[in-house]
Simulated assay, not measured.
Amino acid sequence: MDQPIVVGVDGSEQSLRAVDWGADEAALRGAPLRLVYASLWERYEGALIAQELHRPVDEVMARDVVGTAEERARRRRPGVPVTTDVLPDEPEYGLVRESRTARAVVLGCRGRSGLTEALLGSVSLTVAGHAHCPVIVLRGGHDDPERAGTGRIVLAVGEKPTGEAAVRFAAEEAALRELPLEAVRAWRRPSGPLPGHVPHDGDPERAALDTVEEALRDLPAGVVPVRHVVEGQTRDVLLDASRGAVLLVVGARRRHGRFGLQLGRVAHGVLHRADCAVAVVPEPD
Rank of each mutant, 00 (worst) to 15 (best):
S39I: 01
W21G: 01
R97I: 02
P161R: 06
V137Q: 10
L263H: 08
R189W: 03
E13W: 01
L28P: 02
H132K: 10
G149M: 07
L120D: 01
A23V: 01
F259W: 13
L16F: 04
A50N: 06
V157G: 05
D210K: 12
G129P: 08
G140T: 07
D218R: 14
E213L: 11
V246A: 14
V66C: 01
E71D: 13
R265I: 02
L119C: 00
P284K: 09
A171K: 12
A186N: 06
D285M: 09
D10R: 01
H272V: 00
V237C: 01
V6Y: 07
S122C: 02
A38M: 03
R255E: 07
E146Q: 14
E13T: 02
V250C: 12
A50S: 14
D10W: 00
V226E: 15
R217Q: 13
T126S: 15
A279I: 03
P282Y: 08
R265C: 01
H197T: 03
T150Y: 03
G257T: 04
G196C: 01
V198H: 12
T126Q: 12
A131Q: 06
A18L: 03
R110F: 00
V250H: 11
A267R: 11
P195I: 06
L176P: 01
I49N: 06
V36M: 09
L16A: 14
E205S: 10
R55M: 13
D218I: 01
R253N: 05
A69E: 08
L263Y: 09
P145C: 08
V230Q: 12
V184N: 03
R74W: 00
G260T: 02
G67T: 08
A128D: 03
P180G: 00
P78R: 12
E178T: 10
S191K: 13
V278S: 02
A170M: 02
A183F: 00
H197A: 15
L125E: 11
C109V: 00
P220C: 10
V250P: 07
R100D: 13
M1I: 02
H142M: 03
E52F: 11
V249Y: 07
E164D: 11
L40Q: 12
A47W: 12
G163P: 14
H228C: 12
Q3T: 11
D10C: 05
V224P: 06
D275N: 09
D203H: 11
